[in-house]
Amino acid sequence: MRGFVLVLICWLAACSDRLGHFAGVPATLVEVGGSRFEVRLRGTLAEATRVNPQYAPRLGPLRQQAATAMARVSGCEVRGVLGDQAVMTGILHC
């Protein structure tokens, strides 16, 4: 049991990386509709991190703004966007 807990703690520590899949990928700053995003690309995925302060933004409008930012940086069509008001991940179709 003690070994299982140790493995679980190590696994959780490995998963705590702030950027995860996009670690080490340079960001491109894009502004869309008054929101600023840092966009990172890796393979067929894009990550948009909103970097401007905004009080209680709704995900609906932000999702479209993030998709537009991802499309500008990648030059690809964005098929879907998931995430929250701060960090969104999009699926690219080039």
Rank of each mutant, 00 (worst) to 15 (best):
residue 2 R to K: 11
residue 2 R to P: 00
residue 2 R to Q: 10
residue 6 L to P: 00
residue 7 V to A: 15
residue 8 L to C: 11
residue 9 I to F: 11
residue 14 A to T: 06
residue 14 A to P: 01
residue 14 A to Y: 07
residue 17 D to E: 13
residue 18 R to C: 04
residue 19 L to A: 13
residue 19 L to T: 06
residue 20 G to T: 07
residue 21 H to A: 14
residue 23 A to F: 09
residue 23 A to V: 10
residue 24 G to S: 13
residue 28 T to R: 10
residue 28 T to N: 07
residue 31 E to H: 06
residue 32 V to P: 06
residue 38 E to V: 04
residue 40 R to H: 12
residue 41 L to C: 09
residue 41 L to Y: 04
residue 42 R to G: 11
residue 43 G to Q: 13
residue 43 G to N: 13
residue 43 G to I: 12
residue 44 T to P: 06
residue 45 L to C: 08
residue 46 A to V: 04
residue 46 A to L: 08
residue 49 T to R: 14
residue 50 R to M: 15
residue 50 R to N: 08
residue 51 V to C: 11
residue 52 N to I: 05
residue 52 N to G: 11
residue 53 P to D: 14
residue 54 Q to K: 09
residue 56 A to R: 13
residue 57 P to Q: 06
residue 57 P to M: 06
residue 59 L to I: 12
residue 60 G to R: 11
residue 63 R to L: 09
residue 64 Q to G: 03
residue 67 A to E: 08
residue 67 A to N: 04
residue 70 M to F: 02
residue 71 A to Y: 00
residue 73 V to C: 01
residue 74 S to I: 02
residue 74 S to T: 03
residue 74 S to M: 02
residue 79 R to Y: 00
residue 81 V to L: 01
residue 83 G to K: 03
residue 85 Q to V: 10
residue 87 V to P: 02
residue 88 M to H: 00
residue 88 M to N: 00
residue 88 M to Y: 00
residue 90 G to M: 01
residue 91 I to D: 05
residue 92 L to G: 01
residue 93 H to A: 11
residue 94 C to Q: 01
residue 94 C to N: 02
